[in-house]
Design a protein around this nucleic acid. Structure first.
Lengths: 323, 323
DNA sequence: CCTTGCAGTGCAAACGTTTGCATGCGAGCA
DNA sequence: TGCTCGCATGCAAACGTTTGCACTGCAAGG
């Protein structure tokens, strides 16, 4: 069991100096004689002293922690985000709280309210709360949103639009004429961005485009949609994300449609824990960069509302597209 | 931005009562007149008072948080664990820190050391630290291990042995004669348990058994192993987990081996974010139950070292096995 | 030699709670 | 009526830090 831990006064007493000096040895070593600092460090080491974060938080107001709220940790997109956030936090010497909302607005509210007071700030991914409420929340708590482009908020967007346009250009160059976009959850920001990119590119390149939707974003629903994809007469499929793409791929394979010979397929996120066969062409999202930006916003000295940071994904052509 | 939050004394002043009474209204409402409690609640609500966890932690020594340390968050096994842990923590009114080690012992040490002082206790999954060191750590910090059967520790095991034996019995009943076990990382506790179960069952049922290993536990390596599986002459494959099983499955499918007609396949964990085709027969692990037990050990009043809790997975026959 | 300034350190207050002890008050009982 | 008892609440200390201010002594400058 945990025995009583050494405190700053224990260390001070051991050295016959004041607690404030011990504190300074850790926080402002430049204001102390080097020998004093060394002595304190030695004694702290010997006594197993480790600063009490709660006491420190109480006086300084800095908690040494950040929060991360995601809707669904089993969606492979979010573990990638968690990993990036944790590494970024670690670099800054922060610990990270994680919570899941299950896309439930009520849970999301509660999680934000719980985390806010005990963290430097919280990162909320793919929020499902109404814009007005988000703005209200942003007023009284330090919060950065990921993939939620609500004006008035601090937000970072993992964007796939330009890579998607590039990918569609590539598909067209390889002979695609009829696109089919299999979208995801309608409320998702990425969904809007991706659908928009498909629409634009199709118009610009003179391609036909057909639109389907996997509202649940699940593999099973996507797999069932493969029939509709075929019925649309498309020769290239763009999928909302890799899970959807994977479902479509398997649906096509079962129907003996050869990919990419008869049908090209482009996914998004590059977050699958497994490889498909053929290997999925997709868009690799800059998780690390995006989260780093979010973290910077959180620990920034002055917050400015309405900061919009967009980081762009890059096209990763593998085996489900030709060329 | 965060404005100065209301404190217990603000609430007290607003009501003309003592701070201690406000505190008691939250912590020992039974010791107060019901009307007082109601008044405090109303005022707290109105002023937006929310208790400062750091101040509370400072005086009570209870932090209201637990830690969870996993090796690799992108392995679909662990998001399941994270989810279970978070729900369990939430039920108990605890927040949850999460950190990732990347299977790096040094990082694991550091994460444990960082989390221990600021939590009620920490759950460490699939530790890669030597037994002696774990026992040392367990002496001075409240820690529960998951899938690490080191004597002397508090540990909970998500066991698949009995379900696996049942599954192999089923395979044999359906005509399987030569098993092939495709194992995972050698240091993993689950690996030992599963390999052992295969060995035992094979002996008991008079089946031949061939052993391969996907040391990295990755889809790609497993997929490449499909050739060796075929070479072994097996008619049924047991895989370390669903990722490995998925790799083997795809490798077999590419070689035009029909599953389950020509080859049965049994995975483990039931943690894949996608469905395979045919749907994977597997062993569903009791994440919720296991984590709940771990949580109970952590918040228990008296800790007893060397507590071993085993929760058993259940066989889930789907489409990669016959019958 | 006296003053000034600065580097190094100590003192004590403050952060927001919780809690043991003290206090006051009304009810019950003799 | 007087005494005891228990309930509801207040008082103040304590948790472990950090930090503004005060103090000391020494070096440098006049």
């Amino acid at each position: 069991m945990t025995v009583a831990r050494a405190s700053v006064v224990d260390v001070a007493r051991a050295l016959g100096i004041a607690p404030s000096t011990v504190s300074r040895a850790f926080n402002h070593p430049d204001r102390l004689r080097p020998e004093t600092v060394a002595a304190v460090q030695e004694a702290a080491e010997r006594l197993g002293y480790v600063p009490n974060r709660h006491a420190r938080a109480l006086i300084t107001g800095r908690t040494g922690a950040i929060g991360l709220i995601v809707p669904d940790i089993t969606n492979p997109f979010f573990p990638k985000l968690v990993r990036a956030a944790q590494r970024s936090a670690e670099q800054r010497g922060l610990s990270m709280f994680v919570a899941e909302t299950g896309y439930d607005p009520e849970k999301e509210r509660r999680q934000i309210a719980t985390m806010a007071p005990q963290t430097e700030g919280v990162i909320v991914a793919s929020s499902r709360l109404p814009d007005d409420e988000l703005r209200l929340i942003a007023q009284r708590t330090r919060v950065v949103f990921i993939n939620n482009d609500t004006p008035g908020l601090s937000r970072v967007l993992l964007s796939s639009g330009s890579a998607l346009r590039e990918g569609i250009g590539h598909l067209a160059a390889q002979g695609a004429r009829r696109l089919c976009y299999v979208g995801g959850p309608a409320r998702s920001w990425s969904e809007g961005e991706r659908r928009g990119a498909v629409r634009e590119s199709a118009a610009a390149l003179g391609l036909e485009a057909h639109y389907l939707r996997d509202e649940s974003g699940t593999y099973a629903e996507a797999r069932a949609l493969a029939k509709s994809v075929l019925a649309s007469g498309a020769d290239a499929v763009i999928a909302f994300d890799d899970v959807v793409a994977h479902g479509v791929l398997d649906g096509l394979l079962v129907a003996h449609v050869r990919v990419p010979e008869k049908m090209s397929l482009l996914g998004c996120d590059d977050a699958l824990p497994i490889q498909t066969h053929p290997r999925m062409s997709t868009i690799r999202l800059p998780f690390t960069e995006g989260v780093r930006a979010a973290m910077a916003l959180i620990v920034a000295d002055e917050v400015e509302a309405d900061t919009r940071i967009e980081v762009a994904g890059v096209l990763e052509l593998r085996e489900t597209t030709r060329g």
